[in-house]
C-alpha cells in the first residue's frame, strides 16, 4: 500500500536460542500516531532497533518510506528519528556539542543547524543547560536533550521508545503537546509506553505485542469493544476480579449477583492489555 510508511513482514530476530521477535507483521500508515504496547521483554525495543537498522534480523523484510532497510539503509535512515529507551548522549561532550554532532551526522548546514538547535532548545527550555556537560543534568533533562537531537533533521517518522518514563508531570505534558503538534503537522509517530492512559489519549491506533508477536491491533476504542465495552470489577477470594460485557444491562445483571464492592465502568485500554497479556498474572477464567 502506498500510504503505509512502514511495512514490516514476518520479522524474526533471535538472540542465540532466544527468539525476541517471532514473525511480526505490522504496517504503519503515513501520518498516524501509533502506540506500541506490551509487557517487559515483549520485543518492542528489539523491533524498533531492527527498523532503525541498529541490529540485523534473521528473517523478514522491513520497508521504511518504501526503502528496504537492508538494501537502502541510508535512504531509510534519513526518514527516521529515534529516541532510544536509554538516554544515549555522549557524556564527554556538552549538550550543545551533542546536538551539533547529531546535526552533522545528518549533514545539516551550519546556519540551519544553529537555528534549529535554538528553536528546539527554546521549546524544551533547555537554553541554560546547552553548554553544560551531559552528566550535570538530571535524567529528565537529559531525555529532553535526546529528544531534541532526534528531531533536528525533521524526520518523517519519529520513534519514541518510552519517551515519558522518568519525566515529571510537566515535562510529560510538554512532551504530549509536542507529540500532538508533530502529529498535526503530519509526522508519523510510533510510541512505546507502559503508561496505557497515555496511549489511549494520544494514539490513533495501538498494537499490543507479546512474546514477539502482535496479538491485537486497532483503534483503542475498538479494542475495548472487542473485549467488552463495560467492565465489572468485584472482589472475590480476596482478589480483584474483572468481567467484561457487551452492554450495561448484562453488566448490571451480573453485578447484582455479586456481593460487596462492585463497580461498573467503561472498559479501558488497560483492561484490554491485562486481558490479553496478563492471563498468568490475573485470575480470570
Amino acid at each position: 500500500m502506498m500510504d503505509d510508511i512502514i511495512v514490516i513482514k514476518g520479522l524474526v530476530k533471535r538472540f542465540g536460542d532466544k527468539t525476541a521477535v517471532n514473525g511480526l507483521d505490522l504496517s504503519i500508515r503515513k501520518g498516524e500516531l501509533f502506540g506500541f504496547l506490551g509487557p517487559n521483554g515483549a520485543g518492542k525495543t528489539t523491533t524498533l532497533r531492527c527498523v532503525a537498522t541498529l541490529t540485523g534480523f534473521d528473517e523478514g523484510t522491513i520497508l521504511v518510506g518504501g526503502h528496504d532497510v537492508k538494501k537502502e539503509p541510508s535512504a531509510a535512515k534519513s526518514c527516521m528519528g529515534v529516541i532510544q529507551q536509554q538516554v544515549s548522549l555522549d557524556k564527554d561532550l556538552t549538550i550543545r556539542e551533542n546536538m551539533i554532532s547529531h546535526a552533522m551526522y545528518h549533514d545539516i548546514r551550519k546556519k540551519e543547524r544553529e537555528e534549529k538547535i535554538a528553536e528546539l532548545s527554546d521549546f524544551f527550555s533547555l537554553g541554560e543547560y546547552l553548554d553544560k556537560p551531559v552528566d550535570s543534568l538530571s535524567g529528565g533533562w537529559k531525555k529532553r536533550a535526546a529528544i531534541v537531537c532526534a528531531m533536528l533533521h525533521n524526520p518523517e517518522v519519529l520513534f519514541l521508545d518510552e519517551p515519558t518514563s522518568g519525566l515529571d508531570i510537566n515535562a510529560r505534558r510538554l512532551l504530549w503537546d509536542i507529540i500532538r503538534k508533530l502529529h498535526a503537522e503530519g509526522t508519523t509517530i510510533i510510541l512505546t509506553t507502559h503508561y496505557i492512559e497515555e496511549a489511549e489519549s494520544l494514539c490513533d491506533r495501538v498494537g499490543i505485542i507479546d512474546k514477539g508477536k502482535i496479538i491485537a491491533l486497532d483503534e483503542p476504542r475498538v479494542l475495548c469493544d472487542k473485549v467488552g465495552s463495560i467492565a465489572v470489577e468485584f472482589a472475590e477470594e480476596g482478589k480483584t476480579q474483572y468481567r467484561y460485557f457487551k452492554d450495561r444491562d448484562e453488566a448490571n445483571a451480573f453485578a447484582s449477583t455479586k456481593e460487596g464492592n462492585v463497580s461498573i465502568r467503561k472498559t479501558n485500554l488497560e483492561d484490554v492489555f491485562v486481558e490479553l497479556t496478563g492471563k498468568s498474572v490475573g485470575a480470570q477464567t
Binding site: 541498529l54 541510508s74 527516521m80
Partner: peptide, 22 residues
Amino acid sequence: TRMNVQRLYYKSFDEMMMCPLS
C-alpha cells in the same frame, strides 16, 4: 577506548549508526 565507551556505555555510537552515513 573511546569507541568502546561510546558503544557499550554511552550508547551514543548507536545514535550515529542510525544516521545516513556511509
